[in-house]
Amino acid sequence: MGKAEMIEPFSDTYNAHASYKKIPLTVLQKLDTPMNLICVTPIKIEALFSNFKKDGYSSRQTLIC
């Protein structure tokens, strides 16, 4: 579960992510429609992992951010 937000094309955040992924801005500017970038901030994380039981924990763990 989380909060999703669209990043404005060619904003500082958008350009920084393109740089991190090694995508040249010139390539992105030539696209007919800009590539969408969605930033997801987790609110609640649920994990189901049977090996937790070996350590004495419940197999289902929840983290609320």
Rank of each mutant, 00 (worst) to 15 (best):
A16G: 00
S58C: 03
K54L: 10
K3T: 01
A16V: 10
F49D: 12
I23C: 03
Y57V: 03
A4H: 04
K54S: 11
C39T: 10
L37K: 00
K44P: 01
K53G: 07
D12Y: 06
C39L: 14
L31C: 14
P34H: 12
M1I: 02
N15C: 14
L48I: 10
I7N: 04
A47D: 00
T41E: 12
N36S: 13
E8P: 03
D55P: 02
M1D: 08
V40P: 00
Y20C: 14
D55R: 05
E5Q: 04
Y20G: 05
K53W: 00
Y57F: 15
V40H: 10
V40R: 10
E8F: 00
T41W: 02
T62E: 05
V40D: 03
M1L: 02
L28D: 06
Q29E: 15
K21F: 12
E46C: 13
L31I: 05
E5R: 07
L31E: 11
L25N: 12
T62D: 00
T62R: 09
I7W: 02
N36E: 15
S59E: 05
P24E: 11
A4C: 00
R60S: 04
Y57Q: 09
I38F: 03
C65Q: 02
K54I: 10
I64S: 04
K21E: 12
T26V: 13
I45F: 05
F49E: 07
Q29L: 14
A47K: 03
H17P: 01
I64H: 05
R60H: 05
S11F: 07
N51A: 14
G56Y: 05
P24I: 13
G56R: 04
I7V: 15
K44Y: 04
T33H: 06
F52S: 02
E8Q: 09
Q29Y: 09
D12V: 10
F49A: 10
D12T: 08
R60I: 06
L28K: 09
P42R: 06
H17E: 15
G56N: 03
E46N: 14
Q29K: 15
K21P: 00
A16L: 09
I45W: 08
G56A: 07
Q29T: 13
A47Q: 08
T33S: 07
L31P: 02
M6Q: 08
M1W: 03
C39E: 10
I23V: 15
P9Y: 07
Y14V: 15
P9I: 01
Q61A: 11
V27F: 14
A4N: 03
L25K: 08
G2C: 01
D55V: 03
S58Q: 06
P24C: 15
P9L: 12
L28W: 08
V40N: 10
M6D: 01
A47P: 07
V27K: 12
P42A: 08
Q61I: 07
H17L: 15
C39P: 00
I45C: 04
S11H: 06
K22R: 14
A4P: 00
P42F: 12
S11T: 06
Y20F: 14
D12G: 06
G2W: 03
L31N: 03
K54V: 05
G56I: 07
G2A: 09
T41N: 06
F49G: 12
L37F: 08
N15G: 05
P34A: 13
Y20R: 15
